[in-house]
């Protein structure tokens, strides 16, 4: 099955990177779920949590403030001035 290549970056470092099966984020329009094969999208994140389900391992939750999310060719980049992993 196809996988998503994910990287969560904040201004001063790369918070997390790896492959994932699914991502759920909250944009200004509402929650968005991303699976492999998603169309290219650029969305503005509203303050909230981004849930990542990695290919292996337990689900992760990251907090991202005033950032955005871009998806293209199964590559997901979550960018925020300040981001951190909650668990």
């Amino acid at each position: 099955m196809a996988e998503l290549t994910v990287s969560v970056v904040s201004a001063d470092r790369e918070v997390w990177s790896g492959t994932a099966k699914q991502i759920v984020a909250r944009t200004t329009e509402g929650e968005i779920g991303i699976l492999p094969g998603h169309e290219p999208i650029l969305g503005i994140l509203s303050a909230g949590e981004v849930r990542i389900t990695p290919v292996s391992g337990a689900p992760l939750t990251a907090r991202a403030e005033d950032g955005f999310l871009s998806v293209e060719n199964d590559t997901v980049t979550i960018v925020a001035g300040q981001a951190e992993l909650v668990s």
Partner: peptide, 24 residues
């Protein structure tokens, strides 16, 4: 660059992105 879908609207996205760009 792929043809992006914007959420919410292009203007809003650009409006939110540019200050971030300047910051960076």
């Amino acid at each position: 660059l792929p043809l992006y879908e914007f959420e919410p609207e292009v203007d809003d996205v650009l409006g939110a992105l540019l200050p971030v760009y300047i910051e960076s």
